[in-house]
Each structure stands twice: as structure tokens, then as C-alpha cells.
């Protein structure tokens, strides 16, 4: 089955403070797919999401990433967003003094400008906010506060999915969106993600645990270890990991390394 390729990552290497974290990532994602990326701590999961979104702390040292044909790595972070890439942060940033409304309006209108569309009127924008808030049951009060300031862990994650709803991305990367969530918040967040899923967009779910994958069913599961995808499979791989932990994978990889 030949489909359009949404994201193609080839031999991607990246470093932070001169330390190489990603050591050759290959990944191909098509519209409509959900990919889970799992792996032990320090394997490079968050680095991968940061590099794709353009976090300036990371330096790409080799490889390429194309996003529906566009050279992703050549774009400024804001333009990657305009092109339809969304990163749900593991630790959403608090921005005191910037209200959620101003923040989102700036984001939505910057994207519209990029796409050559006129800015939304204030009333249309507020209507849009109202509609999208419902997706993750985000309280109106939160929407009127400063960005993430004083939000609980669960509220921050819901706010991330709310922003995802507002920006209607083609590819969403959920970086440990389940961490720090209780079961109710997890369900709300996951159902928000599922509501936003279509034939035309795709999702990368980065997680430690099977738990989130009970709610967001992946089509593919990849295991990241020491900066490489060392194993890929279907949803059953996640269950296997849940049962056996990461040690067998680590052992396998470490043995291979020794033999080399």
C-alpha cells in the first residue's frame, strides 16, 4: 500500500553541549498512523521530539528529516509549527504575564498569515477557543490565566492538548504526555487526542508505559535505546515490554555492540 509520506527521518544524529544523543534515527510516518516510541530513561526520546520541533539547545550533526516533502531541519521552530508539526511538551513552560488568550491568538494568526489567510476576528477567535476547550474539558478560568502559570500537572497537559486542537496539526508529538497524570486526567487527555485523530494527520506518542497506549492505540511501536531505534513492531511489542521490561532489549543491543 503506497501512501504519501508525512515524515521521513533518515540517519538523524543530534547532540547537546557537544554530547551526541541521537546516533542515527530512521523513521517513516504516513497520514492516519499512530506511532509509539518507547525506551528506557536517557535513550533519547525527548531529544528526538526536541530536534524535530527545533529546540535550539540541540544541534543536528548529521542526517535529514522531511515533513510532507519540506526540509524540516531548515525551518525555524515557528515555521515547523505553521507547517503542521505540534509538540506536546513533557514539561510545559510557564510564561507569567502572557495570557492564554493573547498567546493562542498570536499563534493562530501567525499560522494564518503564513498560509496567506486573513487574521481571525476577535469574536471568531473567542468562539474557536470555546469550541476547542470542550475537547479537553478545559476550564474557562484556565484559559484566562497566564500560560501554564500555577496550573497543576494535569491542567498543563490538558492545556497542551487544547493547543493541539486549536492549531490542528498534521503531526503531533506527545512527549510523555501521560507523566504526572492521574487516571481521570489521563482519560480526558487521551480522549482529546483520539477526537482530534483523522485520516490525514498522524501522532507520535512518546511514553515509558503501556498505560497510555491502552487509550491511544498505536499502529507501530518503536524502541529507542542509546540513540537508535533498536526494535520496531506492532502494538503487541508494547505489551511485551510491559511484561518483560527493557532489560532483554538492552542485553541484546549491548551484546551486539560487544560482538562488533
Amino acid at each position: 500500500m503506497q501512501q504519501d509520506i508525512l515524515l521521513k527521518v533518515t540517519d538523524l544524529h543530534a547532540a547537546i553541549d557537544g554530547r551526541e544523543i541521537l546516533k542515527g534515527i530512521d523513521l517513516e510516518i504516513h497520514p492516519g498512523e499512530v506511532h509509539a516510541i518507547m525506551g528506557p530513561n536517557g535513550s533519547g526520546k525527548s531529544t528526538l521530539s526536541g530536534v524535530l520541533a527545533g529546540d535550539p539547545r540541540y544541534t543536528v550533526t548529521a542526517g535529514s528529516a522531511t515533513f510532507h516533502g519540506v526540509d524540516l531541519l531548515a525551518l525555524a521552530p515557528e515555521n515547523r509549527s505553521h507547517e503542521g508539526l505540534f509538540l506536546s511538551f513533557q514539561y510545559p513552560v510557564e510564561i507569567p504575564g502572557v495570557s492564554m488568550v493573547n498567546f493562542m491568538r498570536a499563534a493562530v494568526n501567525a499560522k494564518r498569515e503564513y498560509l496567506g489567510e486573513p487574521p481571525l476576528s476577535a469574536s471568531d477567535f473567542l468562539k474557536l477557543m470555546r469550541n476547542k476547550r470542550a475537547v479537553v474539558e478545559l476550564d474557562n478560568k484556565l484559559a484566562s490565566r497566564s500560560v501554564n502559570e500555577g496550573f497543576s500537572g494535569g491542567e498543563k497537559k490538558r492545556n497542551e492538548i487544547f493547543q493541539m486542537a486549536m492549531l490542528e496539526p498534521r503531526l503531533s508529538i506527545l512527549d510523555e504526555t501521560d507523566s504526572g497524570l492521574d487516571i481521570d486526567a489521563l482519560r480526558i487527555v487521551a480522549s482529546g487526542v483520539n477526537k482530534l485523530k483523522t485520516q490525514h494527520n498522524a501522532t507520535i506518542v512518546i511514553t515509558h508505559y503501556q498505560r497510555l497506549l491502552d487509550y491511544i492505540r498505536p499502529d507501530f511501536v518503536h524502541i529507542l535505546y542509546k540513540g537508535r531505534i533498536v526494535h520496531s513492531g506492532g502494538p503487541e511489542l508494547a505489551l511485551e515490554l510491559e511484561e518483560k521490561g527493557y532489560d532483554w532489549i538492552k542485553q541484546q543491543v549491548d551484546n551486539d555492540e560487544q560482538q562488533q
Binding site: 527545533g54 510557564e94 504575564g97 502572557v98 498567546f103 498570536a106 499563534a107 493562530v108 501567525a110 493547543q163
Partner: peptide, 22 residues
């Protein structure tokens, strides 16, 4: 905060301005 805003599509100059106002 700057990267967070840019990742949401807000251009750098505008993000800078918003952060200074904030």
C-alpha cells in the same frame, strides 16, 4: 519560554515582544 512560543508558531520577534511586555 521563547522556544515554547515559537513551537506554537509565534514568530521570534513577536515572541520576544510578548515576553518583554509580560
Amino acid at each position: 519560554a521563547m522556544f515554547y512560543m515559537r513551537s506554537r508558531g509565534i514568530p521570534q520577534a513577536q515572541a520576544r515582544m510578548m515576553l518583554m511586555q509580560a
